[in-house]
């Protein structure tokens, strides 16, 4: 896959997001917290873009903004050349059709009271697209039996639930798949299955992938480009192999040094 082919698909400029703590005094407003400070990034068509950071780094906030689930305090996001910041939900249809998300914990991101069929079809129903035989097709694509459609999420293992979440995200044939820590809630023995599946689907469907993780070694396996976040800012960005081999920012170096590895021991 060539990286940076053609025009950028996602372009974020100067994103800042300030949250206000609930007020604890009658006279003073709640304290302001800058979750994201002047963040800019560019994701090319077909690129596999990794975002690495620890809790509190702002990566979840950035993700919500990119997915149009929250509004920045200032800054702009263009998706496929169109501005998405400040648009009301009813005008975000083009984004919803073209960008879908897989969340970290497939137990909490699948409504426990819905059948798999309805879960997978939900983006289609919501966007008014035909459902037809798409659910069976999607379940097959993620390696689940067709009977799975009639069951509820709690009847599946963690890895299978994440497959359901992937099938659902692919339902409206999006151009971009955003994966938010998709394997960190899974057992090691199924992590590889899900990462392989994601890689296959991204290849086959020619998807652009935005992959968020706390683990730089996972990002290195999956992505070409990485942005390292700390305290609401992108501290380092570039081709993942370069960042891995020669981290420039002290935080990236600390992060790399802290990841426990088996290699050192053997």
């Amino acid at each position: 896959m060539p990286s940076h082919a053609g025009t950028p698909l996602i372009e974020a400029r100067g994103l800042t997001r300030v949250y206000h703590r609930p007020r604890s005094s009658l006279t003073k407003p709640g304290a302001a917290v800058e979750a994201l400070r002047e963040v800019s990034l560019t994701v090319g068509r077909g690129e596999r873009y990794g975002i690495v950071g620890e809790s509190g780094s702002g990566k979840s906030t950035l993700l919500r903004l990119l997915c149009g689930l929250d509004r920045p305090t200032s800054g702009s996001i263009r998706f496929d050349g169109r501005e998405i910041t400040g648009l009301p939900e009813r005008r975000l249809r083009f984004l919803r059709e073209n960008l879908q998300i897989v969340f970290q914990d497939p137990m909490s991101s699948l409504d426990p009271r819905m059948r798999v069929r309805d879960l997978v079809a939900e983006p289609l129903v919501a966007l008014g697209l035909p459902v037809g035989g798409r659910v069976a097709e999607l379940l097959e694509a993620v390696g689940l039996p067709a009977e799975a459609a009639e069951r509820y999420p709690h009847q599946f293992s963690g890895g299978q639930r994440q497959r359901i979440a992937i099938a659902r995200a692919l339902a409206p044939r999006p151009k971009v798949l955003v994966a938010d820590e998709p394997v960190s809630a899974l057992d090691v023995s199924v992590r590889g299955q899900i990462l392989n599946l994601l890689a296959d689907l991204v290849d086959e469907l020619g998807l652009t992938l935005v992959f968020v993780s706390h683990d730089l070694s996972v990002v290195r396996h999956v992505c070409e480009t990485v942005a390292v976040m700390s305290a609401g800012e992108i501290v380092e960005t570039g081709p993942v192999d370069d960042v891995w081999a020669a981290p420039a920012h002290p935080y990236t170096r600390a992060l790399l040094a802290a990841v426990p590895t088996l290699e050192g021991l053997l």
């Binding site: 939900e89 409504d111 919501a126």
Partner: peptide, 20 residues
């Protein structure tokens, strides 16, 4: 919950989220 966030990301509007 994440599943309401997921429903929003899927394109669901408020009334549908309320009922479903």
């Amino acid at each position: 919950t994440d599943y309401v966030l997921a429903a929003r990301a899927a394109g669901r509007r408020r009334p549908a989220i309320a009922f479903r």
